[in-house]
């Protein structure tokens, strides 16, 4: 098993197929990241909302 390309430039160009291969990988990585980050963001939003609710309740009871 060895690196299949002569140089970094050839690796990026992939004999003309570079734009296809790299865009497929880029789109997939963005989509994977989205599926992990979206629930994390949803969690943070929930925390914010809950804290706001709590402080409102505390203010109301004062």
């Amino acid at each position: 098993m060895h690196f299949q390309f002569e140089s970094l430039a050839e690796f990026i160009a992939m004999k003309g197929h570079g734009p296809f291969v790299w865009s497929a990988y880029a789109i997939s990585i963005v989509a994977f990241a989205y599926l992990i980050l979206a629930p994390i963001k949803a969690y943070r939003d929930m925390v914010k909302r809950e804290l706001k609710k709590k402080s409102r309740e505390e203010n109301a009871s004062d």
Binding site: M1, H2, F3, Q4, F5, F11, M14, K15, G16, H17, G18, F20, V21, A24, Y25, S28
Partner: peptide, 21 residues
Amino acid sequence: GLAFAPVDYRQGNSYRIIFLH
């Protein structure tokens, strides 16, 4: 898949998309 798998003799490098697709 991108750097170490050998090139496909008919499809060339475009076949490397298979590792995701």
